[in-house]
Design a protein around this nucleic acid. Structure first.
Lengths: 214, 214
DNA sequence: CGCACTAACGTAACGGCGTTAGGTTAGCGC
DNA sequence: GCGCTAACCTAACGCCGTTACGTTAGTGCG
């Protein structure tokens, strides 16, 4: 498979942390892993050994702060969870109309995913056996991103602009934006039409399916 | 990570094939890999060594017929490509109405994906760098499954039942069914509502967004 | 019948990976 | 100044994909 990116590029051995400051290593590990992920754009390049090298520490030291490799990778990608919420919330605020606001929110979701493909893949396209259980349920359900979507949909329903159960409609809209996002991530060489137009088209068609007719 | 499933379960050494029958090994390899994939339900259990063991041959012999591991795994999953077309085509034939037929087709797509999660993951949810280029473009574009969808959409447009460019609408519908499929595959522990109802709800809402109003 | 040729494999090894058992060092309290 | 323990390191296991190269056995030919 051959994934390794940087090799044998030991920075100077990290100085041992002082007593009571053992947690400093944890953030240094996450920072290094995060840097590796964005620089290589390849999850496989973020190996325990590569991260340890980047921090200036030996591989087993990683396990002082993470149970296994997955825990580390998800610790890195968890940061993108919050940013996804920030980005979609900001986009949704650009329109007053509830439906138009949902459209902007959907577009922002897709563009964020396409702009951060590897974190998105880890968070939303992974095999469940390689996904910590909290990232299958609570972390999503209680995430601001999903909560804000549900609130927005519920608001649009109350305003009489959208029909249906807010939860079902939210899952529907999530499916749509996740669908195009993950397809483009997985098949970038597919002859997609102009991407911005496609996204707009898809999101609008999707919302048109649950809109309240006059 | 620890993926290995069966270990040291050598079946008797395979007898060498006769002259001119070297291709027999290839199908035996694909068969064994396919069996491993469905039995374990885990792509990682399909290692070169495990497949070689199952066939009764040594690991390097795999490379007589496959350039690398990905080529083998996709050779296995390619079979599901055809079955996906068969299943969706059969489902679509159950209704005369073009729109209702598309709904049935969509539901069949999702259920097939959920029924074969690992092959679906390999075919449609993988990292592009681990996906043979032909599976990003030609194999999909020229696949009967996608072609039949486009034909069905085009027919519905000509019949005046659906609005829009057939290609764009097809990509839209594909995004929707792939979206819910991949989400459920990736997050099976998410508190989904009753799944059959959800699928039907989503597919109907999606088609409602491109239907022609009277 | 025997022999060279080559198709159809096998042997041995390289460098990587995640992970674990157990040892070592250094700062702080007493 | 001394023991305790937090904060690491050493060494290794067993797996992985992949490669260079050696071996065996059918088969057409003389």
């Amino acid at each position: 498979m051959s994934a390794g990116a940087t090799k044998a590029m030991h920075p100077p051995r990290r100085a041992r942390a002082r007593r009571g400051e053992g947690e400093k290593l944890r953030t240094q590990i996450v920072d290094a892993a995060s840097r590796l992920l964005v620089e290589t754009g390849d999850e496989d390049a973020v190996s325990i050994r590569a991260v340890a090298d980047a921090v200036g520490v030996t591989p087993p030291s990683i396990y002082l702060h993470f149970a296994d490799k997955n825990e580390l990778i998800f610790a890195v990608c968890e940061r993108y969870f919050d940013e996804l919420d920030r980005v979609t919330t900001a986009a949704a605020a650009e329109a007053d109309d509830p439906v138009e606001s949902l459209i902007l929110r959907g577009r922002a979701y897709v563009k964020f995913g396409l702009g951060n493909p590897e974190p998105y893949r880890v968070l939303f396209m992974r095999k469940p056996t390689d996904t910590p259980i909290t990232f299958q349920y609570e972390k999503i359900m209680s995430s601001s991103a999903f909560g804000h979507l549900r609130d927005a949909v519920a608001g649009a329903v109350e305003a009489g602009r959208i029909e249906g159960d807010p939860m079902l409609v939210s899952l529907y809209l999530w499916s749509v934006v996740h669908g195009i996002t993950s397809l483009v991530i997985s098949k970038p060489s597919f002859p997609w039409p102009e991407i911005d137009g496609l996204i707009d088209d898809i999101v609008r068609s999707a919302l048109f399916g649950v809109i309240r007719r006059v």
